[in-house]
Amino acid sequence: MSLFLASFGFGLVTAAVLAIAAVGFTMQFAVTDVLNLAFGAVMIASAFVAYALNQAGVNVWIGLLAAAAAGAAGSVLLNQGIYTPFQRRGSAPITMVIVSLGMTLIIEFGLQAIVGGTNVSYTMSQGPTVRAGGLVLTAVQFVIIGLAIVVMAAVHGLLRYTKLGKAMRATSANRSLARNCGIRTGRIVTVTWAITGALCGIAGTVFAINNGSFGATSADLFLVVILAAVFLGGPGSAYGAMLGAVIIGLATEISAAYITPSYKDVIAFAILLIMMVLRPGGLLGAAVS
């Protein structure tokens, strides 16, 4: 199998993990206007919930569901307990970002104080090697890609065809107008945190599965890759985040194969910075003047 196809396959897997996370992050931002930098911390905390169950003998894919629930609960709690009170006070977006960084430290290192500083792995089988369309990946990697496709389809269905999705888009476009139109924006925001929190939990677990081993601070770097995908697609745009995830996933893995793996994340960051300077609205967003 050629180097290109191999790296393309890995790129798809990375893109799949990234897409789930990036869509969650960008929807959080769209509806609540918080750049929640604690997203990575919640991801890993959820992955550890799955790990605890896994250690108790539960299958990791059932653990994934528990992680989704934990991510949803944690995110709703984070919003209700911290972000909403600050926003009610009229805190500036930049204050919210600093608060979310503070929360990152609290969650990550609080977790590390509990689970310790060494990396852990799930007990699971990678499954047989599967060949499909010239790609050679493990069954688990195919499951991750499949899972991402299902999640993306579900998000698309939610945003396009449900009343809830419509209300979320309305809240995102103009919260006070949406409220005046009879949309219970407080509830929409909470539901959004629950949904995106579930995505965050799923993303954390598949990230941990895909990484092989993980620790409390493993998502630090990945958070920046998520930001790259989000900003590439246009902050707040779910479809943009999907596109950004595919581009960043492929770009990092293919460059890792052809240049050197040490710099694969640097590629993602460079793309992010170039986008911020040239087109801060992202590929699918309006060019912000």
Binding site: L35, I94, M96, F269, L272, L273, M276, V277, P280, V288
Partner: peptide, 24 residues
């Protein structure tokens, strides 16, 4: 990054990313 007409929080994220990138 900061000189552009970029939302303050976006610029801050850009600078954070730059810090991580330089370290890498």
């Amino acid at each position: 990054v900061v000189g552009r007409r970029l939302r303050g929080d976006f610029a801050a994220v850009g600078l954070l990313v730059t810090a991580v990138m330089f370290n890498l």
